[in-house]
Amino acid sequence: MGKYIFKRVISGLVTIVILITCCFFLMHAVPGSPFSKGEQGVPPEVMQRLNEKYGLDLPLHEQYIRYMSNILHGDLGISYKNTTVQVNDLVGRGFPVSARIGALAVVVSLLIGVALGIVSAVKRGSLFDGIAMVTATIGVCVPLFVISVLLLYLFAGVLKWLPTYGLSTWRHYILPVTCLSFSPIAYIARMTRSSMLEVMQQDYIRTARAKGVSEFFVICKHGLRNAILPVVTYLGTLIANLLTGSFIVERLFAIPGLGKYFVDSITARDYNIIMGVTIFLGIFVVTCNLIVDVAYGIIDPRVKMDE
């Protein structure tokens, strides 16, 4: 177990170092200095001073070492468009907001998705199963932005039941969280259903029934505990999907989260922010994947730790 975790941590660290390196060289492949863009008429002396101040006159490898050591010290740099803005502040302000919505979406998708999957599997072939699976197919196929726009139009535009932007009351959370969890619910429901159907045919389920265990306990204790395993592996993907999904939802609902800042800085071509936020998101995703993998190893003893 220890060796397995150690291997996973090392591979996670390598991933992050490569990501930072790629980011650094990609952003330096963009032609021109960060200060020459959009700021015409900057006198050459001022340019010189700016480049010196931010170390942009150094050779590339020295800049790289400097950037790396800054990140190791937890400093993601500053915005070159507006030098009073620090990437760390941006992450500090935006991430808690995004994380709150994301965590809610994870909980909602897991609860509803697993519940739908179980009921569909138990009542296989019923009307409920049919409706749930058609809805799940829609959820899997239709892009997030289509669902978000439709829900926004219906509940905020036509019916006017829910607010359209901001995050001041609990009612503001309903639409963004629903949009984000729509397709995860569909995935989880389909996954739970098919693995539940498989598990319920196993011998130990028959044994449990033969012993006279109530149907509720058979489903929840003996069935679900085994059927839930594939859902755990999906969690890593889910977090990555919610992260990219937040770009769309936060923009559409004007939520001041990290996703919105990221998209804004892409539109403004603020390379240092793009780089800093990408690295932060990369570290976040890699850490989440690591936790999911280790958790899976603990839950399912059949997983070979040395692989």
């Binding site: 490569i18 071509r269 990408t278």
Partner: peptide, 22 residues
């Protein structure tokens, strides 16, 4: 395959956005 593992660890849309910038 280790290279693939590294690439797959991050959402591909992030790479796509980075490449689009350049």
């Amino acid at each position: 395959m280790r290279i693939v593992d590294i690439l797959i660890a991050l959402p591909s849309l992030l790479y796509t956005i980075l490449l689009m910038m350049v």
